[in-house]
């Protein structure tokens, strides 16, 4: 009955010791490469001007293949946030804040708010991007601005 055997879970024990690093795909590699240079990139459609994130192979709004990577100033506001007390894995020290950021260009991304306790945060709080080293990668986090 070999096919009944439980499949080995890919991300169990080994990942508990270290914070997870992004594993870029061909599609997302430009975003993660830019993070290493402290730049935040999202796709923008040349035809309809809409921003697209996470990256797509063609524009989901007008279905043309004229997407190009654009640098974002990395400024925006907190769309929503949660203070996490039970961590994803023990590698995280708690509490930490996860948030949806609405960039000024209108696109959204998941991220972390650093340098501020949740008690000082509110929805619509202005934030700006800051790049944090994570192994061989850098991940885009955000902190409060005025």
């Amino acid at each position: 009955m070999s096919t009944w055997d439980k499949q080995t879970s890919s991300s169990d024990e080994h990942s508990f010791n270290a914070l997870p690093e992004p594993s870029p795909t061909t599609l997302s590699a430009p975003h993660w490469d830019a993070c290493k240079r402290n730049q935040l990139l999202a796709q923008q459609c040349h035809s309809c001007q809409q921003f697209v994130f996470p990256p797509q192979p063609f524009c989901p709004h007008c279905v043309t293949d004229t997407l190009a990577w654009q640098r974002s100033p990395g400024k925006g506001r907190i769309y929503s946030f949660t203070e996490i007390h039970r961590p994803q894995t023990p590698a995280y020290s708690t509490p930490y804040v996860a948030a949806i950021i609405e960039l000024d260009e209108g696109w959204h991304m998941l991220s972390n708010i650093i340098d501020s306790p949740a008690t000082l945060l509110s929805i619509n709080q202005r934030v700006e991007v800051v790049f944090i080293e994570r192994g061989a990668s850098k991940i885009p986090c955000f902190r409060r601005t005025l």
Binding site: S10, S11, P90, A98, M109, L110, N112
Partner: peptide, 21 residues
């Protein structure tokens, strides 16, 4: 495992996992 959230609640997607979601 009691130390981490259940495996199926920890999707390994590049735009959520590294933010501890």
């Amino acid at each position: 495992h009691t130390g981490a959230t259940a495996p199926w609640t920890r999707p390994s997607h590049e735009f959520s996992e590294c933010f501890g979601l």
